[in-house]
Design a protein around this nucleic acid. Structure first.
Length: 472
RNA sequence: GGCGCGGUACCCAAGUGGUAAGGGAACUGUCUGCAAAACAGUCAUUCGGCGGUUCAAAUCCGCCCCGCGCCUCCA
């Protein structure tokens, strides 16, 4: 079954076919490091992490570029408040970004190009656009003239004449068209600047993505991604600049956008101030729970956030870890198989889940459906584990299957269970309790259970002996 | 005004023509000294509403209601 992706340019699910059949080139819009990373960012980057992982699983090599906008009004403002340089601010929040992303088990991009390291190339592009008649200068500012680019609006489906320009933002009367956007901004006093043919200034926001993506991926590539909020104007403007300059269309074959994180039915956003940083969320929840939560809804749908919903994700995630925990315990207790027949039979049945899982992921990265398959598998395994003739090999295959699926989703299950832990006291108390139980001294047995429980240890008596786990 | 997204059980959520996955919660049962975990059963004759097309609709078409997003910076 072929991989299908929803292309926002055509508004259709399309069969995925990269320009170079063996290498997928993907550019994802990165952060502006002026504040802590929040759940909305996490959703975006988990989404593209999943896309990358599934492409790799499907046999493609993926070249992944993600920019860092390290020069911007908000960074300048923050630097003034903190009495720091803009690079100090950018570096601080970039580092923090990588820290929280690593905890979410997000694979690093191949290159994280910074805007400030590509100013020369940007100036070159802007000059090129000016030479071709797509840009004009106004007192040190340079604007892209939208009317000159006939495809403007093709991504966001905006018709220029229908736009209510100035509906929310004050018009700049000097511009030829309200939709014209800045390629270069003249420096105001007190602002950092670079030298340019138009005087001291700095690049506009959109130009960096065009310049850096084509620098690392070529003039045409496969996937360009980001949050849905970037569709207009950012991505629309990027298309206009790039196709105007290179003359090659389409610049990008597939445009992928993730949906918003929503709080009380409102978009989580910086400007509304209703955002939750990952640093704060991690104080209450394991990053893997956060990742599981983000993947439990399809990436294009809005995702409602609340503690209660994270709590539900935690319960579900723990069902997975406890299954692995139980399997580990059984594996340590059960005999090896007497013949290969039983193992092979189980493997045949497991193959069904593998197929279903793959179909879900091939259908526009349907992680929510794929998680559903994992739980079907868990149910199947727990059921067949009850059989008396269960053997070590089958159990190990079962375990590997669950871990394998979770790996494809970047969900780490290993290291979350308590089976690897050693604690002399716990084992000793369990032994004492079992002696008490043997002598029908249930009062003492329950005392020990309570004592361990108070220390966060839950005991479970099974047919194969007593196992313990940490209380979550 | 333009463009677009969404409305599936108590909650979350998959499903875009073939008769409603999965998770959480709840209740009942099996197991257990008691628990826990696990398993079994119950939990939407129904998918915002009303019409239409079809042998067949949550899925297609039309109208309507509700919520949200973009058209400023935002993942």
């Amino acid at each position: 079954m072929p991989l299908k992706v929803y292309n926002n340019l055509t508004r259709k699910k399309e069969e995925f076919a990269p320009i170079d059949p063996s290498l997928v080139k993907m550019y994802v819009c990165g952060i502006t490091p002026y504040d802590e990373t929040h759940l909305g960012h996490a959703r975006a980057y988990v989404t593209f992490d999943i896309i990358k992982r599934h492409l790799e699983y499907s046999g493609y090599k993926v070249k992944h570029i993600q920019n860092i906008t390290d020069i911007d009004d908000k960074i300048i403002k923050k630097a003034k408040i903190n009495d720091q340089s803009i690079s100090e601010v950018a570096e601080h929040y970039s580092n923090s970004f990588f820290e929280v992303m690593d905890k979410l088990n997000i694979k690093r991009a191949d290159v994280y190009p910074k805007a400030t390291e590509h100013i020369k190339e940007m100036i070159g592009w802007i000059k090129g656009l000016q030479d071709k008649g797509f840009a004009y200068e106004l007192n040190g500012d340079v604007y892209f003239e939208v009317q000159k680019f006939k495809g403007y609006g093709k991504l966001s489906k905006h018709k220029m004449e229908d736009q209510q320009a100035g509906a929310r933002v004050e018009l700049d009367a000097r511009k030829k068209d309200p939709l014209d956007f800045a390629l270069w901004k003249a420096a105001k006093p007190d602002e950092p600047y670079w030298l340019s043919p138009w005087g001291n200034g700095r690049p506009g926001w959109h130009i960096e993505c065009s310049v850096m993506s084509t620098k690392y991926l070529g003039e045409q590539f496969d996937i360009h991604g980001g949050g849905l909020d970037l569709q207009f104007p950012h991505h629309e403007n990027e298309i206009a600049q790039t196709e105007a300059l290179t003359g090659k269309a389409p610049w990008v074959k597939y445009w992928l956008h993730n949906g918003f994180v929503v709080i009380n039915q409102q978009k989580m956003s910086k400007s509304l101030g209703n955002f939750f940083t990952l640093i704060d969320i991690y104080k209450k929840f394991d990053p893997m729970v956060v990742r599981f939560f983000l993947l439990s809804t399809h990436y294009r749908s809005p995702l409602n956030f609340s503690d209660a919903q994270l709590k539900e994700a935690e319960e579900a995630y723990q069902k997975l870890t406890s299954t692995i925990d139980n399997l580990d315990f059984l594996i340590s207790k059960v005999k090896t198989a007497e013949n290969d027949v039983e193992v092979a039979e189980t493997d045949d049945e497991l193959a069904v889940y593998k197929r279903k899982f793959g179909e879900m992921m091939d259908d526009d990265f349907n992680t929510a459906g794929a998680i559903g398959v994992i739980f079907e598998l868990v149910k199947f395994i727990n059921d067949h584990v009850k059989e008396e003739k269960i053997d070590k090999e089958s159990l190990m295959h079962d375990k590997q299957m669950i871990i394998g699926f979770c790996d494809l989703l970047g969900i780490n299950l290993v290291g979350k269970t308590s089976s690897g832990d050693q604690s002399f006291n716990i084992e000793k108390l369990i032994e004492e309790r079992n002696q008490a139980r043997g002598g029908k001294n249930f009062k003492r047995a329950d005392e020990i259970r309570k004592q361990l429980e108070d220390n966060g240890i839950i005991l479970e008596d099974t047919a194969y002996g007593t196992k313990w786990r940490k209380n979550a």
